[in-house]
């Protein structure tokens, strides 16, 4: 307060301008300190909210998960190419079989087939059969990558679930409003349409 005196100048009998200024500075300092205290408490709260396992998760588990997924990509790609190669070798065996049959047909058209020629054909065809069985076996064995990849993917899925739990806890601590997780039915509704529905849609669009 600064009431007027008789000569028109401000009196400072109650509070001086300097006092007001100092009081304001003090208020500001207190307000800032209060805010800083709140911030510190919040940060401490966030830190205490973390399970120490979260540190290990970010420094070890997540990089490891990335490596695992990367190896799944490589392994599945290698396995696919192995199957392509095996199918190509299977085609070669089939073509050889067709050639043997054509030779036999030609032989039969020339007259009765001798027992030696028939036995030679049987031997050749049996060898081809064995080759086919070996390729089929290799194709079956090549699918073992699915088991190995499945184990790696399962580990990564578990980690993703753990990360989700930590993230939710952190967001709750920060009082961030979170929508409820989507239900399986909602997630399914967002999935892709099949070829039939795609074709119907393309037709609607004039294609």
């Amino acid at each position: 307060m600064s009431p007027h005196n008789g000569n028109g100048t401000h009196t400072t009998s109650l509070v001086t301008v300097e006092d007001l200024s100092a009081a304001l500075a003090e208020l500001l300092a207190t307000e800032s300190a209060h805010r800083l205290t709140l911030l510190r408490e919040t940060l401490l709260g966030i830190r205490s909210g973390f399970d120490p396992a979260a540190v290990g998760m970010s420094s070890t588990n997540i990089p490891d998960a990335i490596l695992k997924l990367s190896s799944v990509l490589n392994d599945s790609s290698e396995a696919s190419h192995k199957v392509f190669d095996l199918v190509d070798s299977q085609h070669k065996v089939i073509k050889q079989g067709e050639k043997h049959l054509a030779d036999l047909e030609q032989l039969a058209q020339q007259g009765p087939i001798s027992p030696d020629a028939a036995l030679a054909f049987v031997a050749k065809y049996r060898a081809l059969n064995h080759a086919m069985q070996a390729v089929s076996h290799d194709i079956v064995v090549s699918q073992e990558f699915q088991d190995l990849c499945g184990q790696k993917v399962k580990k990564v899925m578990r980690l993703v679930c753990d990360v989700e739990v930590y993230l939710r806890a952190l967001l709750e601590q920060l009082k961030v409003a979170m929508p409820n997780p989507k239900s399986a039915a909602e997630l399914e509704a967002e999935q892709n349409v099949d070829q039939e529905s795609t074709d119907a849609l393309l037709k609607e669009l004039g294609l």
């Binding site: 892709n192 849609l201 393309l202 669009l205 004039g206 294609l207």
Partner: peptide, 12 residues
């Protein structure tokens, strides 16, 4: 594998 309705419409 991207076959949501909006993908098909966008492509069309």
């Amino acid at each position: 594998a991207e076959a949501k309705r909006e993908n098909v419409i966008e492509a069309a």
